[in-house]
Design a protein around this nucleic acid. Sequence first.
DNA 1: CCAGACCTGCAACCTATGGTTGCGTCTGAC
DNA 2: GTCAGACGCAACCATAGGTTGCAGGTCTGG
Lengths: 112, 112
Amino acid sequence: MSVAVDDELWSAVGDPTRRRMLDLLLADGGGTATTLSEQLPVTRQAVAKHLGVLGRVGLVHGTPSGRERRYEVDEAQLARAVAQLSSVGATWDARLRRIKRIAEAIQRGQQS
Amino acid sequence: MSVAVDDELWSAVGDPTRRRMLDLLLADGGGTATTLSEQLPVTRQAVAKHLGVLGRVGLVHGTPSGRERRYEVDEAQLARAVAQLSSVGATWDARLRRIKRIAEAIQRGQQS
DNA sequence: CCAGACCTGCAACCTATGGTTGCGTCTGAC
DNA sequence: GTCAGACGCAACCATAGGTTGCAGGTCTGG
């Protein structure tokens, strides 16, 4: 199947805003809801909700620091997510290749 | 950025049900809304909506055949989707690797 | 030490989307 | 010709992404 256990991670990473947030956190080495919202076309509250989602699946981890709360990417979990992405991609890729082989075989048969 | 143009394809492929539908269509070499819904935990109408979404981004292509409508995967478009998936994965992977290198460098510096 | 600025969290509200049920319609088979 | 099967359309519900507004902590300047 390859598509079953990882729905949580997928849907976390499936949102465009959350993907960009992960990108930003990786690029800047962490950030707060406010700093992220300044680099995104959404409000701080929307970012905060997304951080909640990402935190719930363990992709980010926030620590209070004075009056702000700094978030950082959990590298191990993101690595897992990447693995699952490429796993699904590989599955589809394999099926596409198989289909192509079959199609070619049929065509050869018809041409003969 | 790598995360910008492909939001349509991503969100199409981001839904678990739609991913499973693509899986089923690939495995069976096509199918109808009814046959798909029999293999999924959702109703035919839900499947029909998803087929609409997938059709709108060009991932599937349906042709009426008598009283049923047969859908098949557009291989080229799915290949594009796979490419974009692995592209994002590769980007994150690269960033994770860079971070790891930097972390190791810092640690070496501290240990000296 | 106090006041204002700043960042956070919580709540209400709006909209889109995934899902359901119900119904009308068309096609194919007997 | 009729009846079952498959479809499309419409109404409706729940959840998720997004917004605004507001109250509460924390730092900083006077």
